[in-house]
Design a protein around this nucleic acid. Sequence first.
DNA 1: AAAAATCAGTTGTTTTTCCAACGAAAGAGG
DNA 2: CCTCTTTCGTTGGAAAAACAACTGATTTTT
Lengths: 224, 224
Amino acid sequence: MGIFAAMEKMPLFHGLDREQIQELFRHSGAQRRTYTRGEMVLRAGERTSRLGLLLSGSVHVIREDFWGGRTIVGVVEAGDVFAESFALAGEPLEVSVFSPGEAEVLFLDAEAAGVYSGRFTVNLLALMAGKNLALTRKMGHMARKTTREKLLSYLSAQAIRAGDASFDIPLDRQQLADFLAVDRSAMSAALGKLRDEGILEFRKNHFHLLRRHPEEMGEEELGC
Amino acid sequence: MGIFAAMEKMPLFHGLDREQIQELFRHSGAQRRTYTRGEMVLRAGERTSRLGLLLSGSVHVIREDFWGGRTIVGVVEAGDVFAESFALAGEPLEVSVFSPGEAEVLFLDAEAAGVYSGRFTVNLLALMAGKNLALTRKMGHMARKTTREKLLSYLSAQAIRAGDASFDIPLDRQQLADFLAVDRSAMSAALGKLRDEGILEFRKNHFHLLRRHPEEMGEEELGC
DNA sequence: AAAAATCAGTTGTTTTTCCAACGAAAGAGG
DNA sequence: CCTCTTTCGTTGGAAAAACAACTGATTTTT
């Protein structure tokens, strides 16, 4: 039973020892299942009150549109939680979860687990809060209309986070383009232009924002 | 003390009676404060372990970029909760909260409150899960590159939600354009084109998706 | 009922992005 | 040292979006 050792390190079980985790499982209808290549873990439209915890392997979260087209909206790695928002909001699943290979999933009822461990609930809250923040941040960047503005929004946020006009970013160009949902080459051009205009310096993943040009960003007036 | 009547109806306090709410406040360091026109409720960079519950009035959530430009990222109405993600994730605030008029805010420590009422925590989880879902859905639409694809993504999701190819949407054109972060007139043109191509029918806020043209959407292959 | 305001569609122009292809630079491995 | 590969910047043409301005229709106000 090596899985408990791994679990103690998962954010979801922070502060809980092996004993408490086992106790939790016993009382919260925890269920373990393995999946093989091509199996569906959860289907869109179903309702579930249990969240999924991926113990090993990886699964894909996919969304199907009105005409049957499929898109991968996320890849879940070992240790990650999935379907928790649907379970907790009590909404039917809007995505399906698909196992492209071998995978091992633990399902557990959040509410029941919470009753047995306040700590678990707090961990879950923190986890969801983190996801929420990431989504909100990304949204702030993506909501801008031009590639240039998306870049400035992203880089500005990174600078503020770093507390320094000089900072590194954890994404290469292609990943950044994907993250902002823009074309890589267009983004590259926009970066070059920003550099030419003296707003920005960069080399590889290191960026430096310059303090000039305060009139650059879209400063929406706050109607007092 | 008419505020308790209103609170009993807030999602955050569902299932709790007046007694329990008062009990909760007594033990969770609840603090009430009023703000006047122009006051800052919370400042970016601060840390807080308490979430804000707006009792009356409205406040603006604003984000400041590297150069000092400000953008309104959200308007909080009475009954809404704010700053909860930062409080629960333990991250410093990335936004400021500003009171454009009279407002009354109740601050409360989620963790402490949770200890006194498991129900409160479950409500909070449901609330955050709902926000999360809304964000994820919106992201799915905004991540598409063209206005046409954003529209199809949004409308497809609405049709699936309604369980019917015929459905109403709760937004007018300008609101929809803002929601998808596109230009209204360009969106209008895209809608017209979709209608001409027989993919879509609509009148006012009523839409009808047609089953043909399965090759329309961006069907990304799932590399099984 | 008339006037005003709001909303949605259209058009024309400018700007920006997308796409595909190319080439230079940097890195990995033999 | 050389080749193979990946990454990144650049370019040019086609497509799309942004923007501004206008019209007609509908709704609200007076």
